[in-house]
Amino acid sequence: MMEPQQITPISIGEVVTKAEQAKKDGNRLVQIGCTKIGDDFEILYVFDKDYKLTNYRITVKQADEIPSISGVYFGAFVYENEIHDLYGIHVTGINIDFKGTFYKTAIKHPFSVTIVKEDDSCQNK
């Protein structure tokens, strides 16, 4: 069994300060991920130092704008562009902003909607 994990809820306004603090404490950025729960979107920021995780979570609506932490962690742009493209949540101030072209998907913001795909035949005959 692995150690249990703690996730600390924070507000949108705290995101950048928490990231700055994490970097000051010598953490690396592990990932930023999004989960849709009903109409809410949970965004999870994960930092790691010496295999110890620090997790922060914000809960937002799709219309909310969230600040980018790419100014603190340069590499955050991949996750933030991903969240924008797959969930349609606007992230402000990304250092390398693909403006929705990071992922080219058949359906816009696929993770923010329920998709019903018709069961089509296997072959095009």
Binding site: Y103, K104, T105, P110, F111
Partner: peptide
């Protein structure tokens, strides 16, 4: 630029 192999399997 990525996305050539994106399937969306997490969904």
């Amino acid at each position: 630029t990525i996305g050539y192999v994106h399937r969306g399997l997490e969904k």
